[in-house]
Design a protein around this nucleic acid. Structure first.
Lengths: 350, 350
DNA sequence: CTGAAAGCGCTTACAG
DNA sequence: CTGAAAGCGCTTACAG
């Protein structure tokens, strides 16, 4: 009997594979794509051979000829902010459930053009931007996508002209926080790490100012910011350093609004180190409602981003837009949720 | 003069585009791929048209005909552990600098087969697994990849047979921690969230046992674990609950080793709530050296994962293996770094 | 320096 | 129910 060859001929194409099974490429293709009208015995024969050889059709050829399933490209510049990572994971999961393949590119700021180009080359039906991008650059990419009839969605960055957007109601979130603190007797507010010009921060400042104005407080007088004293990092150490700077000031505010939870907790520690009590002497509110809010002493009040609701809306918008060029831009705003914990309390008496 | 048409004919292929420029597809292709030997004036003409039309060649056709640049698929099941996310981001960046395109798939446990299949269909030259996977399943995927001459690399999971691996020296890490605590007079150790059978945890327990044995301590007597009292989550609340359980025990250990930083900090808070002092009454060590280690009071001693060194090694291995089938599996171990902070101190006198 | 033709690995009419 | 041929959008020898 003939020795079986050490290396059976490698199978690299449906042609090779069809030869191996003893059928035409057409028939093999039909089985691969579960088309009806193939004799059961033939189907089984092909499937057995599939198991034996482990053959996988070349996705590039599949997409070139057939349409291929719709694909979504996801751009992210920042994988260091936990809520964004959660959004990414949730979105990919949701889209895959709908039969869409996602391409994820984590890229440096300024590479957005290259990344979109790559997604276009990969025939993406939609491109999603998660996070905060350069607004001019982003707007340019979006009009490019519009021109090509490729859907797009911006998650978390508001006020990009012409953009389909889903974003947390950051304005409303901060209004709610300030209203709440005002009701507790607070009239002076320190801002921690909120001096950047990212749109998300602008929105939050706008909400703060709106709430103050509604309570007939003068923003110029009630808001204080010492961010300029520190090289900005918006992390724990930053919060602690800024808190130290605030602690010694006679006109120190009674409530503090932090850019994120780590900064808020840093500030809490900084104030405590300076001998101040939270919330007896001052209140602090974080943002994002991360797990670390439970770790501080007292626990940290914060604003929850409602990630599930955001991603639900995002997936719905993508599915609705993909393949159908929509002229008007769609903007959806997700209500936030203030979570009160131990770091907020009544304003101290003077 | 003729009115310019509202909608110029859409350009969807090099054929359309070549017609638009008035050249042959061949010439256009040469310019697109920066081949030499095209008249400068022609190059400029094509580039101008490229700007005007925004034409992007179809990546699927490019890959089908030419070889296409090498591609790397990255599998992850878990985007919730910050160090893993950092590794992912660092790796994609490193590989892109080398001209490799990455496909990232974040998938549920058990989907690893589907994901690898997809990467194979996409003609990936290498597949990388970051995190902890089902060992049997992972081994099966790796032998499949081996068979096809596709490179692979497992990051962070040791002891997968036949696998190319780069992983933190978790055995050595825990040996170092125990040695350090032993030198401070600790002879009894509580394990927090370390009872899982993930390989990474097995490695760490092995290091602990090895160190104890080296100091002539009996692991059976010096180690305590109460994980079974809680539905396991390995987060802050879990650590706090377990600490409460330990606090009331007369034979409470003097040192605690936690599965991660959040658990360690939870335990610290739990012990403090029970009236115990850290590190006067007991010492605690976390794992991962995340930013939150600076947020607790006292600050948390921890083990740093040396992410940069890990990813440097990973990128080097991938580049070395891609395209060149290597028979022997390569295993690289990265030394960890113990970072001592306020949560560890001398063992209390009895 | 430029172009017409062949072919990458698939799927999809069209025939049988 | 199965197969031979055409064609997806590129690049690459091969000619001129």
């Amino acid at each position: 009997m003939p020795a079986s060859p050490r290396h059976p001929p490698p199978i690299r194409s449906t042609a090779d594979f069809a030869r191996y099974v003893g059928l035409a490429r057409t028939t093999v293709s039909r089985v691969l794509n579960r088309h009806p009208g193939v004799k059961r015995k033939t189907v089984e024969r092909v499937q057995r051979a599939l198991e034996e050889t482990g053959f996988t059709p070349n996705a590039f050829a599949v997409h070139l000829r057939g349409k291929g399933s719709a694909q979504v490209g996801i751009c992210m510049e920042n994988l260091f902010t936990p809520p964004m990572v959660l959004k990414l994971a949730a979105l990919q999961k949701r889209l895959r459930q709908q039969g869409l393949t996602c391409f994820i590119e984590v890229h440096a700021p300024g590479e957005i053009r290259r990344v979109v180009q790559h997604f276009l080359a990969m025939q993406a039906g939609a491109v999603v931007f998660i996070g905060q991008f350069d607004p001019t650059e982003l707007a340019a990419r979006i009009s490019e996508l519009r021109l090509r009839g490729v859907a797009h969605l911006v998650i978390d960055q508001s006020a990009v002209p012409e953009a389909n957007t889903v974003t947390l109601d950051r304005v409303g979130a901060m209004r709610e926080v300030v209203d709440h603190l005002f009701a507790l007797g607070h009239c002076t507010f320190g801002l921690l790490g909120m001096s950047s010009s990212l749109q998300s921060i602008l929105d939050r400042r706008q909400g703060i100012v709106a709430a103050l104005t509604a309570h007939r407080l003068d923003p110029d007088r009630c808001l204080q910011c010492l961010d300029h004293l520190e090289a900005r990092a918006n992390d724990f150490s930053f919060g602690r350093a800024i808190a130290r700077a605030f602690a010694s000031r006679p006109d120190r505010p009674t409530a503090f609004l932090a850019v994120n939870d780590a900064t808020a907790i840093g500030a809490m520690v900084g104030f405590q180190e300076a001998g101040l009590c939270v919330p007896a002497d001052l209140s602090i509110v974080g943002f994002n409602n991360q797990e670390i809010c439970l770790m501080s002493n007292p626990t940290m009040s914060s604003v929850d981003q409602q990630i599930d609701a955001t991603i639900d809306a995002a997936a719905e918008m993508i599915l609705g837009q993909i393949g159908k060029p929509v002229a008007e831009s769609v903007v959806r705003t997700i209500p936030s949720q203030f979570v009160e914990r131990g770091s907020t309390g009544r304003a101290p008496r003077h």
